[in-house]
């Protein structure tokens, strides 16, 4: 579930408030949004995808918060990886990140043919 919002990275664009499908965030005038309802997080990673500042971290444990160490997460290289590997925004021009979802059918075919 949503674990961390790095306030120093956040640009207060409030995309996470707008995009979260389970309404986890509250906007805060003049400040970064608040993770107001962590329990409502459905661990769908949409907020990370839509955060242009790579200021959000969603842990992959959907049952409980694990309070990860912010310094470790910052150093992990994980911030922004979903947005980058999806080829969004500033990554759109880099062919390395082209959308290859079409290959899903081939993966199934090759796997089931074994």
């Amino acid at each position: 579930m949503i674990e961390l919002l790095f306030e120093d990275l956040c640009t207060q664009c409030n995309e996470c408030v707008t995009k979260c499908p389970s309404n986890v965030f509250d906007s805060v005038p003049g400040a970064a949004p608040a993770i107001a309802r962590q329990d409502d997080c459905q661990t769908c990673y949409m907020c990370e995808m839509y955060c242009p500042a790579d200021a959000l971290f969603v842990g992959s444990d959907c049952e409980k918060p694990n309070a990860p160490d912010p310094a470790e997460i910052r150093a992990s290289g994980w911030l922004g990886e979903l947005r980058r590997n999806s080829g969004w925004d500033e990554w759109a021009a880099d062919p390395q990140y082209n959308n290859q979802i079409w290959y899903m059918g081939e993966v199934f075919k090759r796997g089931l043919a074994r």
């Binding site: 990673y45 992959s60 444990d61 994980w78 590997n85 990140y97 290859q100 979802i101």
Partner: peptide
């Protein structure tokens, strides 16, 4: 990662 970007991070993050 370029077929389904959200699959591998779930493992790595654990």
């Amino acid at each position: 990662p370029y077929i389904s970007p959200n699959v591998l991070p779930v493992f790595r993050r654990q």
